[in-house]
Design a protein around this nucleic acid. Sequence first.
DNA 1: TTGTAAGCGTTATCAT
DNA 2: ATGATAACGCTTACAA
Lengths: 336, 336
Amino acid sequence: MKRRPTIIDVALQAGVSKTTVSRVIGSEADLVREETRNRVLDAIETLGYQHNAVARSLRTDRTNIIMLAIPDITNPFWPGVARGVQDVMDSEGYAVVFANSDWNGPREALFLQMAARNRFDGILINPIQISNDTLKSTGIPTVILSSSEEYPDFDCVGSDSYGGTRLALEHLFAQGHRRIGLISGQRQQRSGHSRRSSYTDFLNSHSLPEDKRLIVDTPFDQAGGFNAMQQLLDLPEPPTAVCAANDILAIGALRAALESGLKIPRLLSIVGMDDIFASSTTTPPLTTVVKSKNRIGQLAAHFLIDRIRGLDHLQPRHHLIPCILQLRGSTAPLNI
Amino acid sequence: MKRRPTIIDVALQAGVSKTTVSRVIGSEADLVREETRNRVLDAIETLGYQHNAVARSLRTDRTNIIMLAIPDITNPFWPGVARGVQDVMDSEGYAVVFANSDWNGPREALFLQMAARNRFDGILINPIQISNDTLKSTGIPTVILSSSEEYPDFDCVGSDSYGGTRLALEHLFAQGHRRIGLISGQRQQRSGHSRRSSYTDFLNSHSLPEDKRLIVDTPFDQAGGFNAMQQLLDLPEPPTAVCAANDILAIGALRAALESGLKIPRLLSIVGMDDIFASSTTTPPLTTVVKSKNRIGQLAAHFLIDRIRGLDHLQPRHHLIPCILQLRGSTAPLNI
DNA sequence: TTGTAAGCGTTATCAT
DNA sequence: ATGATAACGCTTACAA
C-alpha cells in the first residue's frame, strides 16, 4: 500500500504551489483563477487525492466531529434521538461519534476525556453521573439531552415528561378512573421526579387522596414492571388504572396483569411512555405518551451548533419538547 | 476561554524538554527516571494538560478511531451488534464512529469518504450499495458485516441465515407442517438469497413440492408482512405455517392472521428471525431464529483489529455465526 | 537518562 | 492571482 498523495503531490502535478491547492480544496476556491483551479482539480482527480482532515484540524483547531454520549444504545429511545441529531449534523458537515456508557459512570468520564483529547467540536450528552462543573471544565461546547435542572450552565433539551404524565393522568381521569397507580423507575431520579410531581399535582388539582401504596419505584426493565404490577394487584384495593414511567415497564405490567387473568383494558387501564416499537405490537397495543425523539435530537443539535459558532453570550436555554398522547387499546372507560 | 496547555507548557513547568514529556504521556514512560516522571506528572496535573490526539495522529498516522457504517440505526439489530463492537474496541482503545446511511447509497459513499479523509484506522460496514473495489480503494482496513459473497477481498462476519432458516423450517416440519410459506424481504437480495435457497433445499431434502405461490417477496416492514400474510391466506390452499425473513415481517404477518380471525398457533404457525425485543411481547410471543448480535460485533471487531495490526497476509476470512431457534408461542404441532 | 531537531500535511500571513 | 514560509502540537531518530 503506497503513500497517500498530499497537497504537495497535487501541487507538483498541477504545476502550482501548495497554497493554491489549499485554496482550491478549502473555502477560498473563488480566489483562484478558473483555469488554474481546473488544473488543480484535474491533478486531484488523477492522483486520487483525499484531503487530510487530521492535518487540517491541527492547523484550524476544528475537527468537525461532535460526540453524542448516551447511557444505553439498545434503548430504542436513543437511536431515535440520534437520527434527529444526525439529520442536522450531517447537513452542517459534522460527523457524530456515539459514546455508549452502558450506565457506567467511569466510562462516561472516559468518553468525555476522549472528546477533549480528540478536540471534538461539541458534545451532546445525556449525563448519568457527571456534574455540571466537570462538564464545564472540558472547555468544549456542550448541550444536555435531558430535562434535568442540574446543569444550569448549559443548554438543555428534553421532553416535557411532567406535561406528558399529566396528559396520561388526565386521560385516565376523563375515563372515570380515580384510583390510579404510578410505576416509576428508580434509576434516573431526575425524570422520575417530574413524573412524580406531576402525579402529585394531578391528585391535588382533582382533590384526590394520595395513597403511598399506589406509587411503586422499581428497576427500569420489564421484570421491574412485572413485579410492580403484581405488588399493585396485591393491594387490598388495587388501582383501576396504572401509569408507567416508560413502555418497557408498562409492557412488564401488562404481562403481569394478563397473567393474573385480568382483562385489559376492561378491568385495568395501562399507559406507557416513549412509544417504542414493541408498544404498538402488544395485545392490546399500548396507549402511550409519545416523546418526539427526532425533534429532541434536532433541536439539541441546533443548540449545539449555535454554541460552537460562538454564541457564548446567550443565556443557557432550556427547552422541553411537548409530549403527545398516543391512544391505543390498553385504556378504556372505568368499568363500574 | 484561554489556550489549552501544550506539551511545551508542561515541559517548561517541569523543567524538562518536550521530548521527556512526550515520553511520559506516551508508550515510553519507563524510559524516564521516576523522579523526572513524577515532576512531569505533577506539571500535567497542575496545568490540567490533556494531550492533543489530533497532533499525535498527524505524526503517527493513526487515529484510534474506527467507523461502523450501518444502514439503519433504528433497526434494533444494529445497536446489538454495535454493542459487541464497542465492547472490543473500547478495550483496545479505539473510539467508534457511527455512520447511519438510512439506506441511502450516496450517503454511504459520503461516509466512506469521511473515513478516508479523517484517516480512520478501520471500517466495519454492512454495505448497501458500495462495491468490493470501491471499498478496496479507500486503502483502509475494512471488515464486512454481512454474510454476502460479494466482497471477496475482505473479512466477512455474518450470521448463518441459511442454517437459521433451515432450523426454523425443520422445526415446522417436525411439528407436522408440510405446506409452509416463506415471506422474504426484497431489499437485501443477498441475505434474501440464502434464506430462499435454504427454503428450496429444505423442500428438496424432504421431497416436498415447490409451490411458487407460497413465496412472497415484500418490503421489509410491518405493512409488508401484513400484506404478504393476507396474500398467503387468500390462496385456495393457504399454508399451515409461515416463515418470515425477520421479526418485523413476522409481526406484521401475525397481526394479519389474528385480524382475519385465525387462532395462532392452533391454526397457523409463524416463525420470525432476529429476536428483536418486540417479538417477545406479542401475543402469542413469537418463535424466532436468534442471531447473536453481540458475537457478530465482537468477532468483526477482532477481525478488524487483526487487519489494522497489519495481518495483511491472511486470506480473507468468512465467518458465519450460527443461529439458535428460540421457541415461543407462535408455533405448534399441525392441527389435523 | 535526557535533549535537539526534523517532520507529519495542512492553513494563514505576508509578500509579490 | 499566486507563492514562500511559518506555525499547529506532537513523535522519533539521533546525539549527548
